[in-house]
Structures are given as structure tokens and as C-alpha cells.
């Protein structure tokens, strides 16, 4: 019993990060019907922003309250990553908005490769893996045979809060309404006075800052390196598709499903089968529900 509770906790930790990144894929797709394949690498950049911010803060003032340091790091990473995503959108995607979708997708892959290799070549980063400084003291609790760490709790709780906040933004605020309007009909929305360019920038900024939350949390538990965005980006992308790409709640559900696949495959099968199970799940789902779990069937408009 403790064994399964332990594995569920592990799955929630992994799934939270996937869900946070999947949100960025799904939001951009929802509004532009474009898959931003650079998103995994934007996530990678966010972990480095968190790394440099936290190192700097702890280097300047070591006696600060860890909560203050954590929140400052989180906000800086979110802001920096949002800025990066907006710049990428303006420079790389906006000129291609009327071009065929495939051009934008290839550009996105190119942007991703650029970010990876830039970070490898950029001297302060380089190819070596690193740990973030300890933002929050890592303490393990043993509750009835199940080991829970403070980092695990922070990852799961902060992710849940951010997802709740995003859901509220999209459903209750003007920006959210504008986003939904564009994703419904991007030709009529501007006629109704929705500032399309600004809302698209907003979407990229929001998606990237959520990825930065994921990045900061991820960096607290794992090592970071310039190529980390590739695998995580793929898994988050599958999460978004499984949940129904374009659907925000779907991306959250998809993220947790993939987290459970990652953790529970090695429980029942040899761990080698993990990627096989994940991709098979994607294939089977695409056959029976091409629009994902929560996605609506798309009607091709003429």
C-alpha cells in the first residue's frame, strides 16, 4: 500500500511539471493553431534564469528568508521567460502568420535548436549539468512508510495553484475572454474590436511564464542542462495532445496522465517500455479520439 502511495506521489510530482509545460503548447495552439516546438527550450531557458537569479540573490544576501528568495526567483524567471517568448513571437512567428502553418512549425523547431546551441556556446551556461542552489531546505518526512520531501510538496502545491490561477484568468478576465474569442474565430474577433496582436503576445507571455514556474520547480528537484528541454518538451507536447490540444483543462489532465505513465510503467513492466507505452497511448488515442480527451471535433470552415 505504502508502495503505491509513494509511486502516486512520484507521479504527481512529474505530472505537475508536464502539465505546466503542456499548458504553453495548448494555449498557443488554441489561439494560432500552431505548435510552438520551441516551448521545451523556452522552459530550459527559464531554468537557467532561475539558476542565475537565485545564485545572484544568495550571493548578495545570504541571510534572507528562503520563501522571499524563492518567490523573487520565481517572479524573475517568469518575467524573463515571458519577455523571451514575446520577442520570439514578434521576430520569428509574426512575419509568418499568414504563411502556411508548416513554415511556422519549422521556424519553431529552428528557434528551439538556436536556444539549445546558444546556451551550449554561451560561456556562463555551457554544456555541463548543474543544480539550482537550495532555495527551500530539502527535508524528508516519513508518514506511515511513505517518504515525502518538502520539495515534492512545493512542486505539487505551487503547480496546482498556478493551474487554478490560469483557469480563472482564462475564464473570468477580459484577456481570457479575448483569447477564447480569437480561438473561436480569429477572423471575426478583430472585427469586434479584439486587439489580436496584443492578445497573441499576452498568450505567449502567459504560456512562457507558466513554463517558468515549471522550470523553477523542476530545477529545485533535478539537474538542469541545455538539452533538457527536448525530452520534457516532447512529453509535455504528448500531454497536450492526449488532453486535447487547444483545451486548457485537457492539458492539465494530459500532463498528469503522462506523469502516471512515466512512473507506473516501470512498476508493472521493464522500465525500457516507458516511452513505448507513452507513444502507444498517443497513437491509440489519436485513432479513437483524434481531438484528445477534452478536445472538440474541429469543423473545417470554408
Amino acid at each position: 500500500m505504502e508502495f503505491y502511495v509513494q509511486q502516486i506521489l512520484n507521479a504527481l510530482q512529474v505530472g505537475s511539471v508536464y502539465a505546466l509545460i503542456a499548458l504553453g503548447y495548448t494555449m498557443v495552439y488554441g489561439i494560432l493553431t500552431m505548435i510552438n516546438f520551441a516551448h521545451g527550450d523556452i522552459f530550459m531557458v527559464s531554468t537557467y534564469l532561475a539558476f542565475f537569479t537565485s545564485t545572484l540573490i544568495l550571493g548578495l544576501a545570504s541571510g534572507l528568508n528562503p520563501i522571499v528568495v524563492f518567490i523573487a526567483t520565481l517572479l524573475t524567471a517568469m518575467f524573463g521567460t515571458a519577455l523571451l517568448a514575446v520577442v520570439i513571437e514578434r521576430l520569428a512567428y509574426k512575419p509568418l502568420r499568414t504563411a502556411p502553418r508548416i513554415s511556422a512549425v519549422i521556424t519553431a523547431l529552428g528557434v528551439g535548436l538556436f536556444l539549445e546551441n546558444f546556451m551550449v556556446a554561451f560561456k556562463p551556461v555551457g554544456p555541463a549539468p548543474r543544480f539550482l542552489p537550495h532555495l527551500i531546505p530539502a527535508v524528508n518526512f516519513n508518514i506511515g512508510g511513505v517518504t515525502v520531501s518538502t520539495i515534492q510538496i512545493v512542486i505539487i502545491v505551487v503547480s496546482a495553484l498556478v493551474m487554478l490561477l490560469l483557469d480563472t484568468i482564462v475564464r473570468r478576465t477580459m484577456v481570457g475572454t479575448a483569447m477564447r474569442a480569437i480561438s473561436w474565430d480569429k477572423f471575426t474577433a478583430p472585427l469586434m474590436g479584439v486587439p489580436v496582436d496584443r492578445v497573441i503576445s499576452m498568450t505567449f507571455a502567459l504560456g512562457a511564464s507558466i513554463a517558468a514556474v515549471g522550470g523553477t520547480l523542476y530545477g529545485m528537484a533535478y539537474t538542469i542542462d541545455p538539452y533538457m528541454g527536448i525530452r520534457i518538451g516532447w512529453w509535455a507536447f504528448i500531454s497536450a495532445v492526449v488532453g486535447g490540444i487547444g483545451n486548457i483543462r485537457g492539458a492539465m489532465i494530459g500532463g498528469f496522465i503522462l506523469g502516471f505513465v512515466e512512473i507506473f510503467t516501470p512498476v508493472f513492466l521493464p522500465s525500457t517500455y516507458r516511452d513505448f507505452v507513452a507513444f502507444s497511448l498517443l497513437l491509440v488515442l489519436l485513432i479513437f479520439r483524434p481531438t484528445g480527451i477534452l478536445g472538440r471535433p474541429m469543423v473545417q470552415k470554408v
Binding site: E262, F264, V267, P270, S271
Partner: peptide, 17 residues
């Protein structure tokens, strides 16, 4: 006798096993 794949960062499932 547990395995993972190059680039993995989360080994909690295998280690729990």
C-alpha cells in the same frame, strides 16, 4: 535490475521499486 534511458532525470519510480 532496473533501467532508464539516457537523459532521464526522474528515477523515483525505479528507486521506489
Amino acid at each position: 535490475f532496473e533501467t532508464y534511458t539516457t537523459g532521464d532525470k526522474d528515477f523515483s519510480a525505479q528507486l521506489t521499486n
